[in-house]
Amino acid sequence: MDCCEFRERYSDFADGLLEDEAELRARRHLSLCASCRRFHAAFRTGVTALRDLPSVEVSRSFGERLRRRIRHELVVRGLAVDPLSGAVAATLVMVTIGLVAWDLAELRSANRAASAMAVSAMPPALRAPAATPIHRDTIRILLEGFHPFDPVLLVADTNPAQDTNPARFDVPAVWGGR
């Protein structure tokens, strides 16, 4: 056996799979060839060192991560509902509804406060007496200057029979009032 054949059949030699006769020839070659001896020794030393390498262990979180992934897999396939994500979803919906309701209430009270502030900032002469109804004739007088022939839109809201306001203003005939 020469070096070339030895290297070609080296795997079988290393595993002890050569037939008896080939095994003998390989061993004879090995005893005579320094290069192949060196090669064989390097392989043996290398493999021994490789097998002596410390084995790695899975991390502590491995099992939990795998469980999570399998749960996710099942949820995706619709075979199971993840109780945690269900609870989270329900909580989120409740919180959203609460926030919207709270926001609306806040908005309403803020509007009220803003209009109160705007009114109080006005000079007293411009403030409308919020609680005092404007007399229909006052409105009519104010508007008839612009629309003298058609104040109908503004007088239809009150009943003259109920009109007991002492601040009643009688329209002079010269203004064209009726």
């Binding site: 080296y10 795997s11 392989f43």
Partner: peptide, 20 residues
């Protein structure tokens, strides 16, 4: 498989031998 393993073993030994 045998052929690949033989090549792998030869390469492995050839890489290591000069360092030993």
């Amino acid at each position: 498989v045998k052929s690949r393993l033989n090549r792998a073993r030869n390469s492995f030994a050839a890489i290591i031998a000069p360092h030993l």
